[in-house]
Amino acid sequence: MRKFNDSLPLKLLRTRDKLMGYFRPLFLQYELTEQQWRVLRALYEYKELEPSQLAEYCNILTPSMTGILNRLEQAGHIYKRKGSEDRRRFVVGMTAPARDLFDDLSPEVEKCYDKMRADIGNDKVDELSELLDQVLERLDSLED
């Protein structure tokens, strides 16, 4: 068996944790978690989504998504409304204040990316991103 530190999933987790270190302090200033930010990013781009779609897009387990959505709703960042086709289902969208928050926070997030790229190197970040895209595409094709 390979050595503990040679585990690819562990390396990916450690890398993710270190990369998120660039963003966590900013999110904490705005009283957001990483997961809440992912949800807001998805809603900013897609406008309204069902919770199951959000869970898939944001790579968050459905049971966890319920709590995240409840906290975002309590903070006034999202609204929930019944679906137009199936009244038993609901969709989630961003409130106007949350859109303003997103607009304010986005340039700061880009500064975090700039710092990360400066520390790691643009070429390495681009190379890693492309390699991860290729691996994901390959793994997705195996599921079909």
Rank of each mutant, 00 (worst) to 15 (best):
S106F: 14
G21T: 13
A55H: 05
E130N: 13
V135L: 08
T15C: 09
G83L: 06
A55T: 01
D103G: 09
A98R: 03
T33A: 02
E137I: 11
P63F: 01
V39C: 08
V109S: 04
D133T: 12
L32F: 04
Q36K: 05
I78W: 00
D119I: 07
D133G: 03
S52I: 09
Y22D: 02
S84K: 15
A118Q: 13
L43K: 01
V91G: 07
S84F: 10
Y44T: 08
V109T: 06
S106H: 10
E127L: 07
D100S: 11
A118C: 05
L69W: 04
Y57M: 14
Q74I: 10
F102A: 02
D119K: 06
E34N: 08
L131H: 10
L61P: 03
F23A: 10
E34W: 07
C58F: 00
N70L: 09
G67T: 14
I60E: 03
L139Q: 12
E85K: 15
P97C: 01
E130C: 04
V125W: 00
K124C: 06
L32P: 04
R88Y: 09
R81W: 05
L28M: 12
L72R: 03
A42W: 00
R41Q: 14
R71E: 14
S129K: 12
N70K: 15
R71L: 09
N59F: 11
L139Y: 11
N59Q: 12
S129A: 13
R24K: 14
K111D: 12
K111T: 12
E56H: 09
F27H: 08
Q29N: 10
K115F: 06
L128A: 15
E85A: 10
Y113E: 12
L72V: 03
M20H: 11
Q29Y: 08
P25S: 00
L101V: 01
N122T: 14
P97Q: 01
K82V: 15
M116C: 07
V125N: 00
